[in-house]
Amino acid sequence: MKIVKFIDVLNEWVGRIFSWGIIVLTLLAVLEVIRRYIFNAPSIWGFEVTTQIFGLYFMIIAGYGLLYGSHVSIDVFTYYISDKKKAIVDIIAYFIFFFPFTLICLWEGYLFAAKAWAIKETSMSVWGGPVFPIKTVIFVSFILLFLQGVSQVIKKIAFLRGGKTSC
């Protein structure tokens, strides 16, 4: 299962690297207070750059979250059925909910980013920094998320076929 391994490793690394974003976010928030309150010199970029990093942070690690089953779900019903039946229900749910949603968002995310790139969209404030890179994050994140879904489903199918990898 080379593909499964590749996807899992990819999201693992994306997750490991981008998790550190929280440190950056904390420091940016604290430094902005210090700059404004103590030095009376708030930055013109702090607000927007922080917001951009926030958006990047939680979106890009969505696939990593799926890899570790972090996304909230309810198991009141599936709790009582066998693991095999559960895997079948899971796979069906992936095809009804997950794949259509991620594919639509992937496509819409692509169009959304393309529009921003076409005019090299910038921020509307005095900072005026670029916003087209952050507008690409939806597209990239949903690719990662979609791939992780593929990996999860392959693992479940392997499990149904009697393979050892339970998930």
Binding site: S73, F77, K86, D90, A93, F97, F101, C105
Partner: peptide, 19 residues
């Protein structure tokens, strides 16, 4: 129905939005 399938809430909501 979606929630009882045990699928993550985020994607149940998103999937229903698509349907």
């Amino acid at each position: 129905i979606g929630l009882f399938s045990g699928h993550p809430l985020a994607f149940v909501l998103g999937g229903l939005a698509v349907i």
